[in-house]
Design a protein around this nucleic acid. Structure first.
Length: 116
DNA sequence: CGATTGACGTACG
DNA sequence: TCGTACGCCAATC
């Protein structure tokens, strides 16, 4: 009843990975894209997040930021401050729309999901 | 149906 | 090292 491999689409894979992000962690669009084998399709990850609130369950898009830990997608939430609030509530400090110690909170699917 | 944009990232100068 | 250009695929105008 579905349009073939809709759930296997690049978008669905992004949703799956984002949902796997542990609480208090953050990742980048490029990290997800590269994990999916589309390192140069980082834009598609962000575009997929556009439907993140449309999929079930909603994916924690607030845990996804750009490579520098900047909350570039904050404006796409209900309120621009929502993303920051959610991150801080999970233990991730945010300063000026930028994740503090981003490298420490960074969660790379290509690594975390590839633990041998 | 064609051109432009888009929550990014990498390559090149 | 910093700045600019391009690529990726899909959706929107």
């Amino acid at each position: 009843m579905k349009k073939s491999d809709s759930l296997d689409s690049f978008f669905a894979q992004v949703y799956a990975v984002v949902r796997l992000i542990p609480r208090g962690r953050v990742t980048s669009y490029g990290a997800i894209a590269r994990y999916l084998g589309a390192a140069r399709s980082s834009r598609m990850v962000g575009w997929a997040m556009n439907g993140s609130h449309t999929v079930r369950p909603k994916v924690p898009a607030h845990r996804v930021v750009n490579r520098i830990g900047l909350l570039t997608g904050k404006h796409h939430f209900g309120t621009p401050a929502l993303m920051k609030q959610l991150l801080e509530k999970e233990g991730v400090k945010v300063k000026k729309d930028q994740v503090v110690d981003f490298k420490k909170h960074f969660w790379d699917p290509a690594v975390e999901l590839s633990i041998d």
